[in-house]
């Protein structure tokens, strides 16, 4: 297991270097100069601009800038935002809990609904339920997130008025946000109705963000279960006189979960990408919205830093998934 883990961590290093290269070059490939954008319509004096470019190191050749950037990363310095003048890491850590909270709720929703739906569809293969579940999953998978989010806002916030349109909590509540996780902070605050308000604000964004992962997980679980249910060891389990619940829920599911876990891991990347859209639709103050705003402002260091941190998170989650994969599948663990 240790060798397995060391091997996986070793693979992260070249991936990380690749990500720094992409993050660094991506923002520089976009047309538009950050100083011109900051100056706005008034423009900027060419001498002052040259001075600022020199201060920021943008007058140096590209390869030299990249090496300086790498050196800074190794010292834990991701740069400072042109706009807020705050260190990128500090801004990221302030906004990150909001995204994690949303992503966790979404993935929980996707897993808790997707896996049982997939199992049920596989066990009742060809039935009306199977076709309904798979048809719904296909629609969910094909739906543009932006349109789906707006549709839900119109229905549940506009017409039915069950849920708020945007934000993380109603403006009437004020309490210290120590953890950054609104559900936890609202509970700790003891303010009456604060937690319920936080939950109500979380419902629609979570549903929107969970839609694609839910569809993917349900379809993957169904196909994995169908494959596994035909295996000899499932017949052996039934021949032992075990209950159908134990045969399906333990013997079949344990094997079917192996590809499903990989799928769930891959969905984390989809969630973070989806968070960019979802956070924009629901004005959710997370890293997705922060990244979109920074790209439009050509805030080089924020874009570089945010991309790098998001990529690092995806890599860490994938590492965790690899370890889980090894734990679930003894054949991997012992090789």
């Amino acid at each position: 297991m240790l060798r397995f883990l060391v091997g996986r961590i070793g693979l992260l290093i070249p991936t990380f270097i690749g990500v720094t290269l992409v993050a660094f070059s991506f923002i520089r490939l976009l047309p538009g100069d950050p100083l011109d954008l900051l100056a706005g319509e008034r423009g900027i004096d060419p001498e002052r601009k040259a001075e600022l470019l020199r201060q920021m190191g943008f007058d140096k050749p590209m390869w030299q800038q990249y090496l300086m950037y790498l050196g800074d990363i190794l010292q834990g310095d991701l740069g400072t935002s042109f706009v807020s003048k705050k260190p990128v890491l500090t801004e990221f850590l302030t906004l990150f809990p909001a995204t994690v909270e949303l992503a966790l709720c979404a993935i929980l929703l996707a897993v808790l609904l997707g896996i049982p739906a997939g199992i049920f569809a596989a066990v009742k293969r060809g039935s009306f339920f199977d076709q309904s579940i798979m048809g719904t999953a296909l629609v969910g998978y094909s739906m543009p997130i932006f349109w789906w989010g707006l549709l839900l806002i119109i229905l549940f916030s506009g017409i039915l008025q069950w849920t708020p349109v945007s934000g993380r909590i109603s403006l009437i509540y004020f309490f210290p946000q120590d953890t950054g996780f609104m559900l936890i902070d609202s509970l700790r605050s003891g303010e009456k109705g604060a937690f319920a308000s936080a939950v109500r604000h979380l419902i629609l964004p979570s549903v929107v963000l969970a839609t694609i992962p839910l569809a993917v997980i349900a379809r993957q679980t169904r196909s994995a279960m169908l494959e596994v249910l035909g295996e000899d060891y499932v017949r052996t389990a039934r021949a032992k006189g075990l209950s159908p619940l134990r045969v399906i829920g333990l013997h079949a599911l344990r094997n079917a979960l192996i590809p499903v876990i990989t799928t769930i891991g891959l969905q984390v990347g989809v969630l973070l990408a989806g968070a960019i859209l979802t956070e924009t639709i629901f004005s959710w103050p997370g890293i997705g919205k922060w990244l979109v705003d920074s790209i439009s402002r050509r805030d080089y260091f924020v874009v570089q830093g945010a991309l790098l941190l998001i990529a690092a998170i995806v890599m860490i989650v994938n590492l965790i998934v690899d370890v889980l994969y090894g734990l679930v599948n003894p054949r991997i663990r012992h090789t």
């Binding site: 000899d232 060891y233 052996t236 021949a239 075990l242 599948n329």
Partner: peptide, 24 residues
Amino acid sequence: RRQVIGKDISMIFQEPIASLNPCF
């Protein structure tokens, strides 16, 4: 019937490796 199967009547199969659950 499940109380009879596996207890009073049991069965072994042709492919022993495939017949055992690889995860347990």
